[in-house]
Nucleic acid binder design. Structure first.
Lengths: 282, 282
DNA sequence: CAGTGGTCTAGACCACTGG
DNA sequence: CAGTGGTCTAGACCACTGC
């Protein structure tokens, strides 16, 4: 299956001088793979397994396999893309490393989902100081506001849209074991979330990202946070039941779907008297 | 080279009943590998490449290859451990993923080091709000204190030592482009750092972890942080040239050497007026 | 038991670096 | 150019899951 093109330029073939067009590469199976799957725009030149990874990502993005579903077996995919199992495997390995796919030995490979995820609140790194007990089960959510507005410069920049574009804005308080701990303002691009209403939100009991997934088909894949220390303004303080001189963490998060498209911006205020933001460094 | 032991128990070998001692596994090459290398205590049963990974880690820990040096080529290691190149490769892949080894195509595989690392301040996730320009080059360090004391309960717990054990404690201020931004208290176990003095520290210009590496042979490989929002006490505020009502990030970090041994605990206070703690989530 | 992912091998060849 | 890591293959077998 490999390397049919040995020396693509039969003329002009001394030992020197043609060091720039040597495309006698085994990895240039682009067309072969391309044709099999779709009219995609794969950049230019990359290892086969990277190309497979991109193709898988595109299928995911286009909804060929829904969150929670199994994707075809490695052997099937190898057949489909006309490569060896090992190559497919390496592509899947990377996607599993990015928490986009989940492997389950003896069962299959599944599209990650925020629903039924053993670790709910995947992006929430707040931990009680007493470590072990993960509170997250006992979370109580309270929606404070939910309205349509227009993107500020800051929100627009984060969401990759234009200032004054329509956005959905909501505010909520999370309490753990009865203690108000997190106050969040969340901005969503209007074009994708126009159907969202306070009622639908109130009816849903579960993580926000699971809601986005089931109600809007928007799957968050990764995120980026910027953390500062702040004093809350009077309104914020009241919602968190603290004074305006109690410092809080300000956690600004941008969350992304497939292909790195930003789909949510939020600012969270975390009360860190009895808990902390936990991070592992390598 | 594989699977000499097909059915280790020649007697008692009907089709039933021996479902608990079936060690006819290809992965049980422990002894073979073991003998070749060292009198180690590999847990019990794991894939070959995991065993190789452990062996490599032990060699690193024992200083067989120093930070910055190249380790043997994949082919050499395959020969040494009597496995295929692919197996060694997978072990190295994981270590490279943990930032313990660095691969350089066409050159070799190297032991990661905090010296000459393109990314200095590997564990410092503070970024100026204006993103792109990484200040870190213009850092100015000022040692405020350096003394021997006895571990508090908190420090002892973090360092895995006993309360009142000897520890070295130092305090310093980091300024970026002239602005005092970080105040750090650092605790080090006395048994490993007893030779550390304020003078030696003052003479060294470079990242702290590089200093530990070259002066004490202590290589930090990973770390864990707990972040809270705090108000500084009067002394801290003065050192950072802020008021006691300016909130700061409290970043408590425990840093680990090979085999997860904690070797440093520090509390940093980060002034986040013009910068933020940046984190990527997957 | 069949089917899936997980491990291992042996060998070929490519891409890159340095002398 | 020789030597290193990087990619790809084909095939064997193991470990696990569910029916």
């Amino acid at each position: 299956m490999s390397a049919q093109i040995k020396s693509s330029n039969p003329t002009m073939d001394a030992n020197t001088d043609n060091d720039e067009l040597k495309n006698n590469s085994k990895y240039l199976l682009l067309n072969k793979v391309d044709v099999l799957k779709s009219p995609t725009n794969i950049p230019s030149f990359s290892p086969l397994y990277q190309q497979i990874k991109e193709l898988l990502l595109q299928s995911l993005q286009q909804g060929e396999w829904q969150p929670g579903e199994a994707i075809p077996s490695e052997m099937d995919l190898a057949e489909r893309f006309q490569v060896s199992q090992g190559t497919v495997r390496k592509a899947i390995d990377e996607l599993a490393g990015d928490n986009i796919l989940i492997r389950r030995q003896g069962v299959g490979t599944f599209v990650a989902t925020h629903l039924e995820e053993r670790v709910q609140y995947r992006f929430l790194k707040l931990m009680p100081d007493s470590e072990d007990p993960l509170n997250k089960a006992s979370a109580e959510r309270r929606i404070i506001a939910c309205k349509k507005t227009f993107a500020s410069a800051k929100v627009a920049k984060a969401l990759g849209i234009t200032k004054n574009d329509s956005v959905l804005c909501l505010r909520r308080v999370l309490a753990f074991s009865g203690v108000a701990t997190i106050l969040e303002d969340i901005w969503l691009p209007g074009h994708s979330f126009s159907e969202l209403t306070a009622e639908r939100l109130r009816d849903y009991h579960g993580p926000m990202y699971a809601f986005f997934e089931s109600a809007f088909g928007v799957k968050m894949v990764k995120a980026q946070e910027r953390i500062k220390a702040l004093l809350p303004d009077p309104i914020q303080a009241e919602l968190l039941k603290i004074s305006t001189s109690t410092p809080v963490l300000s956690v600004e998060r941008t969350a992304f779907t497939y292909n790195d498209a930003p789909m949510e911006f939020r600012q969270g205020l975390y009360l860190t008297l009895d808990c902390h933001y936990k991070n592992e460094l390598n």
